[in-house]
Each structure stands twice: as C-alpha cells, then as structure tokens.
C-alpha cells in the first residue's frame, strides 16, 4: 500500500539519499542504512534521549521522527562533532570529567549538550540540568555530566 519515497538530506555535512517506506523512523535509517550507529536506541518510546540527534538546529529524538519528514534537512550526529581528527570540546570534557560510565547515553547526551551550548553558551548549573532533562543516564548520577558540560562551555567561550 505505502509508496516508498526518496529522501535527501545532509548528514554531518555530506549529502545522502535513502529510499524508505514512510513509516521508517529516522533512527533506523541512520543506524541501518547509513551506518551511523552513534545514536542509540534506548526506550523506543520517546523517553530516554539515547537516540538524540541535531535536526535543523533542534535536538530531537530520532525514534520519534519519520525519515520522510527530513527531506532537505541538516542532521548532525555524534559522528559529526569531531573535526579533523580532534574531539569536540564536549567530547574531550566528557572524557576528562568522567562524564560517562557505560556510555550508552553518551552520544545522545553530548549531542543534546551541543545544541544547549549553541543556544546558551554560558549556562548555569540549573540551565544544564533542565537542558539535559530529556536524556536519561542510568550510571553516572549526572554530577560529572553537568561538570563536563560546564567545563566544555568554559573552553568554548575561551576559544571564542
């Protein structure tokens, strides 16, 4: 019944094209067709944030977006944050501040924090906590995640 659609978008700066049934979720196109397995599937029910990607300058849960909705979009995943072999300040800070344990939530957490810092380069601790409140972490207790985001914010501000 359902007609497959060609969908083109930019993934981490590179043009890509997929042909999908309309019911295909973005997370599956990314992981299974485009080999971007950074965004994880946690809950599949729009609650955990493990699947977070940056879509047209919004943090979204890729398990709750249809690929067909992404025609012409610009999508950034955790794979796109590293530049020229150098980790993004957030990735470096998560490493230095022990902002992860098992790492399952980390790609979503960092991708979300990336957009948060774009919108609010100098966030308070409360801004960070509410800003990442759509991302669950079962390991860290969030303390070191908050520290990592604070530390990355300072580094990014210093770098201008």
């Amino acid at each position: 019944m359902a007609t497959a659609k060609k969908v083109s978008f930019k993934l981490n700066g590179k043009p890509v094209e997929v042909t999908v049934e309309p019911r295909e979720l973005l997370i599956h196109s990314l992981r299974e067709r485009l080999a971007h397995t950074g965004p994880h599937i946690g809950c599949e029910t729009s609650h955990c944030g493990a699947c977070t990607v940056d879509l047209n300058e919004m943090s979204v849960k890729a398990c709750t977006v249809l690929t067909v909705q992404c025609e012409g979009a610009e999508i950034t995943t955790i794979e796109g944050l590293e530049q020229g072999g150098a980790l993004h300040a957030l990735q470096q800070a998560f490493h230095e501040e022990h902002g992860l344990q098992c790492g399952y939530c980390t790609p979503g957490m960092i991708t979300r924090a990336y957009r948060l810092l774009k919108e609010n380069p100098n966030p308070s601790e409360q801004d960070i906590r509410s800003g990442i409140s759509g991302n669950l972490c079962r390991c860290t207790g969030y303390q070191n995640i908050v520290k990592a985001v604070q530390s990355a914010a300072k580094k990014l501000a210093a770098a201008g």
Partner: peptide, 11 residues
C-alpha cells in the same frame, strides 16, 4: 516498534 504502513503527503 515501527508504525503500520501509511502513505505520506507534505502539502
């Protein structure tokens, strides 16, 4: 968890 099939329109 994937929805049942449907056709998609974007007016």
């Amino acid at each position: 968890m994937i929805p049942a099939g449907f056709d998609y329109h974007a007016p």
